[in-house]
Design a protein around this nucleic acid. Structure first.
Lengths: 248, 248
DNA sequence: TAAATTATTGCAAATAATTACATAATATTG
DNA sequence: CAATATTATGTAATTATTTGCAATAATTTA
């Protein structure tokens, strides 16, 4: 049996059952579980399914959505969020960009903290419903289903009226010369508005996002005051330090 | 059974019952309560539910406590939502007011239904993230924590730019002469804007809300086209019928 | 065609994750 | 405050994954 036939069978079965088990596939296809695992690995790599312990499940309707990104690199994100918490003080007005790093930060807000949070992220707003002492302002607009943030002119208009103490940015990619970049034009525009509205701009980025770039430019790297990352790698961060950006 | 299937089951059950109990889940899923607890832990960590002693509750669209919420009026709301579904057709633009009745309606949207939904409700927007074919537009503004809707000038400004086929209103109180009333001025203003923006106005109200009134007026009762309720009581609805309002 | 290279597959040991169970600590209820 | 239920913690058993390696099959190159 050809490898392609196996892959085909796996996808068909996944479609039919909404899940596949390695043991079952191994039996169906008469190959070792190792091979099945490698097949699933390949399919996951191509984005055709999500590999989980013991088998695989289909992608959610919105591929690489917020929901799927949540939980990965969770420890790193918590490290970052822990550092970022030190910037927060009672009475501040904060802009919270969407993204899993900022979401983690919001989850870690101490109960007593009194903030006004302006956000374009539906999950962040939802999370803060449970927080006793934050004021939440949601920017309006069309909601993107994969990132679960609002964007568009309405979002930007609302941000234009805001002056916040800090803007926490969840960034896709940042690069010393290419600046901050993203994979969606609309979201990049919103991020830019957020940066303009914040007195200090703090980017939350796991180390693997440093030195990478995406198609749509948000702003120059010099717009940032601080980068909060999980692991301070001397080599990687030097270019940012040279530009006067604090990295912690 | 894959862990992901369990998580899926828990979320589905939570969706249906508005609560889950560890003992029950342990039995349903045939795993120990420890495992259920860990699953709930993980889901809570992802912000998908709120873990409480003995089980979990949804990121509540209702400000009630665990004990109070057990199934209150849930069946009635489902009856109402079921009737309201018949007004919905592909391609429509719909305004969805916040509230538990409208939330229940949104939960019951068939997967194929292609709508544009404009809402001021954070939980409704969140719910529709999962829906494959709706476009969601969230009105911006300050978020009220008890009702979990946005309100204020920003919300109203956004609604002024909208022309929707139907406005679904979740009403606190309605009365033949006092009209539609609410307990918060800001929310009443927003509801008024929604009514103005909708071609047809359909109110969702359990029978116990008929003939009651609250301090803040939203609009005259004649602004309504239709009232959808759970039990059509001839006596109670006659005044509305006399005013030319359909009641189903 | 033969030899060399590459890819695929299965196996086994080491590693890691998941789960159930026992027990201690904590919270809730009457 | 005692009785009960729930949660946290440590541990052991189970199960899955990773890794290196050898055997086989397929492909390329000489």
């Amino acid at each position: 049996m050809l490898k392609e036939e196996r892959l085909d069978y796996i996808l068909k079965k996944l479609q039919a059952d909404n899940k596949v088990l390695q043991a079952e596939l191994s039996n169906d296809l008469q190959v070792s579980e190792d091979t099945v695992r490698r097949d699933l690995e390949a399919l996951a790599q191509s984005g055709l399914l999500i590999k989980v312990r013991g088998g695989a499940i289909p992608h959610s309707p919105h591929p690489y959505s917020f929901k799927e990104r949540i939980g990965i690199h969770e420890d790193d994100k918590r490290t970052i969020a822990g550092k970022a918490l030190s910037f927060l003080h009672d009475g501040q007005t904060i802009i919270m960009d969407g993204g899993t790093s900022t979401f983690t930060l919001v989850k870690m807000f101490p109960a007593h903290l009194k903030l006004t949070v302006i956000t374009n992220s539906v999950p962040i707003a939802m999370q803060l419903m449970e927080h006793p002492s934050t004021e939440v302002i949601l920017t309006g607009g069309r909601v993107f289903k994969n990132s679960q943030v609002t964007s568009g002119l309405d979002t930007i208009r609302m941000l234009e009226k805001v002056r916040a103490d800090i803007c926490f940015l969840g960034v896709c990619s940042l690069h010393p010369t290419a600046g901050i970049t993203g994979i969606d034009l609309g979201e990049a525009e919103v991020k830019y508005s957020m940066i303009q509205a914040g007195n200090r701009v703090i980017a939350l980025a796991t180390i693997d996002k440093m030195g990478t770039a995406e198609p749509f430019k948000v702003c120059d790297i010099t717009e940032l005051d601080t980068i909060v990352t999980d692991r301070v790698d001397e080599q990687l961060i030097q270019p940012y330090l040279n530009l006067g950006i604090k990295v912690i």
